[in-house]
Design a binder for these strands. Structure first.
Lengths: 338, 338
DNA sequence: CTGAAAGCGCTTACAG
DNA sequence: CTGAAAGCGCTTACAG
C-alpha cells in the first residue's frame, strides 16, 4: 500500500558518506558537528525526502511525543462549546511544541481506555477534561505516577496538577449580580451533580443566597445533566413549583439554550404576553446568541481557550522537566449580553 | 517520573522459563503453543502486570495502530453537531478494533500537519472530514499512495475511497417538499462555497427549482460559511432584497440556528406580529430544538453516526487488506420537526 | 511445540 | 568532530 521503500537514516548516512550516528546528531542539532558535514547531510535528507520515523525514535528515547486527551464519555459533553474550543486549542498548542493529540474516553467508572494508552506507552502524559467526584481515572493516573494535568479542580486529591477557573467565586459574583439587579427569587439549574464544576458553582450560588439573607428553596434547584433538554425540563419543573421566580443561575451553555427555548416557546404568539416573570438570567456560556428583549443576560466567560492552552503547556512543561505550579487559576470575565 | 522500571517481554519470558519468542507467540495467540506453557505465560503476565509496548510492536510490525482524523481548520466546523457526533463514533469504532485516533488539521492550502503524521509513521491511515474543491491534502495522500477515506465526495478524483450521503439527491427531495407545501419563492442559504457539501446541496436546489418551472434568483441565494452568524446575516440580506419569500433551504445546522435567531428576534414582542412570511424551512440538521409555531420545519438527517462508523470501518478494512467498495452511500432521512 | 538470531529505525554512551 | 556498537522492546522466518 505504502511507497515501495521507506527511506531510513541508514540510506541517508550511506549517501552522505557518514555514519548513522552523525546523521542522527545532525537531525538532533547537536553542537559538535562540522558545518560542512551538516550541510551535506541536510542536502541529502532533502534529496531523499527523508523523514525520521517517530516510532523508532520513540522506542529509542522511550517517549512518544503524544499527549492523551481524556474526554468524558457522555454524549452531551461533545455538544458543549467548551469542549470544542478546548480541543482545538489543545491540538494547536501540542502541535506547536512537537506533540500530537490522541483521544481517549473516560467511561463510567472505567479507566480502561486510558490505562491501555498509558501501559502501551502510546502517550507521554494526559490531559483530563472535567472530572467527577472520586474520579477513578485520576486515581489510576496518580497511583501509577503518570504525568497528567486536569482541566478543573480535584476535590479529593491535593497533589494533582490542575488548571481551573475559580468556579465558586465566579458563581458567587454572578449570583450577586442578579441580586443587585433586583432579583428576589433566584432559581438554579446545573449539570451532573457529581461533576466538580457543578458542585463548585452550586456552592457559589448557595453561599451568595445565604449571605444575602435570602432563603434557599429546594424547589428552585435542579441538577441533572449537561444538555439543553435538561434546561428545557428543569425550567418547566421550577416554574410549575413557583412561577414567581425572577432570576435564574445556569451552569452551562447547553442548559442555557434549553431554558431559552422554553421561554421563547411559552410566550403567546398571539398577544406576545408571557406568564414568565424572569428578569435576569446568569449563565456560564451561552453557545449562541439567542436573545430575548425582555430578559437581561449576564454571562460568565470561563475562557476555554486559555484553559486549554495552559493545560497543554503545563503538561508538556512537566514532561520536559520544567518547574510548573501545581494549581493555576484562570480569570473569568462577566459581561452583560443584551 | 514513570514507574521505576517498565516490565518487558524479556522479564516475562525469564520468569516463565521460556524464550521471548514464545511469549510473543502466546500474546499473538498463535495456534502452535502447548496449552500448558500458554497458561503459564498468561499467569506470569498477570502477576507482573505486563503490557506489551505499542511502540516496540509498531517498530517491528511497521504499523502504528493509529488512525489520523483530519479536521478542517476553520473554527466554525467544531461547533457543528455533525463533527461532534462523528468524532465520538469514530473514536469508539477505532477503539473497538484496536486502533487509536490521532487528531490532525487541514489548514488553508496546507498539508503539513497531515504530512508530518504520515511521514513520521505515526498513523497507518487517515480519515478526512469534509473536503474542498481540489483539496491539497487529498492530492498529497493520493500521490503518496497512503490509505485514506473521505467523509464526503471527491469531485476531482475518482479513485478515492469515500463514504457519503447523496447530497444532491437529498437537497432535491428537500426542495421539492417545500414546493409541494406550497412555497412559491424559495431562498437558499449555504456554507462555504468551496466545500463539496455546499456545492452538492446547491446543485440539488438549483435543479429542483428549475425542473419545477420556478426561476432562479440570485438575490435569494447566499453562500458564506458554516456559522450561525452567517445564517443570521444571510436571512437579513435576503429579506432586504425580497421580503416576500415563503420558504428557505438551509444547508447546515449552525446556519439554521442563526436564521431561527433572526426570525425569533424580529417578531414584535408587543403584538406578536411579524413581517416575515416564511412558511417552511428545509434544513440539514437543526442542532437543537428551537421552534416557532408559525413555521414548518423539514429536516434532512444525514446520520453522522453511520457516516463516522462506516468511514472508520472502511479505513481499517483497507488497512487489514479486506475488500472494500470505493464509494459508499449512506441513506438520509427526511422528517417534519414540528 | 520452542529457541536463537536477525531485524524494525532510531539514539547515545564510549572511544578515538 | 566522528564511528562502531549496544540497546530500546518487540516480531518472525529459520532451524530443530
Amino acid at each position: 500500500m505504502k511507497e515501495g521503500r521507506h527511506v531510513t537514516i541508514k540510506m541517508v548516512a550511506d549517501k552522505a558518506g557518514v555514519s548513522k550516528s552523525t546523521v542522527s546528531r545532525a537531525i538532533g542539532n547537536y553542537p559538535d558537528i562540522s558545518d560542512k558535514t551538516k550541510e551535506k547531510i541536510f542536502s541529502v535528507m532533502k534529496e531523499l525526502n527523508y523523514y525520521p520515523s517517530a516510532i523508532a525514535r520513540s522506542l529509542a528515547n522511550r517517549i512518544s511525543k503524544n499527549v492523551g486527551l481524556v474526554l468524558p464519555a457522555d454524549d452531551d459533553f461533545f455538544l458543549n462549546p467548551f469542549f470544542q474550543e478546548s480541543l482545538r486549542i489543545i491540538s494547536k498548542t501540542a502541535s506547536s511544541r512537537g506533540y500530537d493529540v490522541l483521544i481517549a474516553y473516560n467511561g463510567d467508572n472505567e479507566t480502561r481506555s486510558v490505562e491501555r494508552l498509558v501501559k502501551a506507552n502510546k502517550v507521554d502524559g494526559v490531559i483530563m477534561m472535567r472530572s467527577v467526584v472520586q474520579d477513578p481515572t485520576i486515581e489510576y493516573l496518580r497511583d501509577s505516577n503518570f504525568p497528567f494535568v486536569l482541566i478543573g479542580k480535584s476535590i479529593d486529591y491535593s497533589s494533582v496538577h490542575s488548571v481551573d477557573t475559580d468556579n465558586v467565586d465566579a458563581c458567587k459574583t454572578l449570583t450577586k449580580k442578579l441580586i443587585d439587579s433586583g432579583c428576589k427569587k433566584i432559581a438554579f439549574i446545573g449539570g451532573d451533580k457529581n461533576s466538580v464544576v457543578t458542585i463548585d458553582r452550586f456552592n457559589g450560588y448557595v453561599k451568595t443566597i445565604e449571605e444575602n439573607g435570602m432563603k434557599l428553596n429546594k424547589d428552585l434547584i435542579q441538577e441533572n445533566e449537561f444538555s439543553s433538554m435538561n434546561g428545557y425540563r428543569s425550567i418547566e419543573k421550577i416554574l410549575k413549583n413557583d412561577s414567581s421566580i425572577d432570576g435564574i443561575v445556569i451552569t452551562d451553555a447547553l442548559i442555557f439554550s434549553g431554558v431559552m427555548d422554553y421561554i421563547n416557546n411559552h410566550k403567546s404568539y398571539e398577544t406576545g404576553e408571557s406568564s414568565i416573570k424572569i428578569k435576569v438570567i446568569g449563565t456560564f456560556g451561552t453557545g449562541n446568541f439567542q436573545q430575548n428583549p425582555d430578559i437581561e443576560i449576564i454571562n460568565v466567560d470561563v475562557d476555554s481557550k486559555i484553559l486549554g492552552e495552559k493545560s497543554c503547556n503545563t503538561l508538556i512543561d512537566l514532561l520536559e522537566g520544567k518547574d510548573v505550579e501545581m494549581t493555576q487559576i484562570v480569570d473569568y470575565k462577566i459581561s452583560n449580553i443584551n
